[in-house]
């Protein structure tokens, strides 16, 4: 079933991470990713990983779901890290033809794997604990300064809201159209790749036609409800930066200090 796709899924729960201000969560994910990539030795890398792990623990979402989010990128992690084993510099530990394994390569391999996995986990913490509306809202507020430069931030955020709202509706419709075409004898599961792509055309055309019809209706409905752009618009739920948010921000700053110290005091390892 197509509608099983869980893209950036949100799991409602009552936790510190769910309550945290979405703007801060976005900033902290970026912050965590920077830490991961700046980490030069195992101690500082471990600190960055522990920081993300703490976020996962505070989200009160079962570890199983986090592991599930890693599944689609497992191949990518394996591929890039194995590739890195053979690209190290320095004395070879083992050599066979052009394949050389060095200590440096092995370390880089671990670093790459840990970085990608931790990066996915960090962004999962964000999407698991933040509802799509909160997310678009936060992005709108964070990018607001750009609207002074003429960037249509409100329109962009509204587009995202509508897109997220219609993803399930359109997926459901795709399923229906596919079933309807199959009932008329369409074959979508066999044949060469080219044939299968061609078999999708009778699904895509009705889908597009109906999407446009929906768009016309939606525009009418929005205009009827006095939508006239972002000007003079208010929000029912205003984002508020609470006391727990300040505490999280302060703790993250403390982590930054420890991180910088570890990174500078201990020697860097792995391929630069």
């Amino acid at each position: 079933m197509i509608s099983d796709i869980t893209l950036g899924q949100y799991f409602p729960q009552k936790s510190l991470m769910h309550r945290a201000d979405p703007r801060m969560k976005i900033c902290l994910v970026i912050y965590a990713i920077v830490l991961l990539f700046v980490a030069g030795n195992f101690a500082s890398l471990a600190l960055a990983v522990a920081y993300i792990g703490l976020g996962m623990a505070l989200s009160r979402i079962p570890l199983k779901l986090y592991l599930k989010s890693l599944k689609p990128i497992l191949f990518l992690v394996a591929f890039t890290s194995v590739l890195n084993i053979f690209y190290g510099t320095g004395e070879p530990l083992w050599q066979w033809g052009i394949l050389r394994v060095t200590a440096n390569g092995l370390i880089t391999c671990v670093f790459v794997a840990v970085r990608i996995v931790a990066l996915i986990l960090a962004s999962s913490v964000l999407t698991f604990t933040t509802s799509p509306t909160q997310l678009t809202d936060a992005i709108e507020r964070l990018l607001k300064p750009l609207s002074k430069l003429g960037v249509p931030i409100h329109e962009f955020a509204m587009m995202m809201t509508i897109a997220l709202r219609f993803v399930p509706t359109l997926l459901e419709e795709t399923d229906k159209i596919m079933a309807a075409q199959k009932a008329r004898g369409a074959d979508m599961e066999s044949g060469s790749l080219a044939q299968r792509i061609r078999a999708l055309v009778p699904v895509l055309i009705p889908l597009f036609v109906s999407a446009f019809r929906r768009a016309f209706d939606l525009a009418t409905a929005m205009e009827s409800r006095c939508y006239h752009g972002g000007e003079g618009r208010t929000k029912m739920k205003s984002l508020s930066f609470g006391r727990s948010d300040w505490m999280v921000a302060a703790a993250s700053l403390a982590a930054l200090a420890a991180f910088v110290a570890l990174n500078l005091l201990l020697p860097a390892v792995g391929r630069p």
Binding site: T133, T161, R213, R214, D217, A221
Partner: peptide, 12 residues
């Protein structure tokens, strides 16, 4: 409007 799906804007 007629189609209930097409006039709801937000995801909640």
């Amino acid at each position: 409007l007629q189609n209930p799906d097409n006039q709801l804007v937000a995801g909640v």
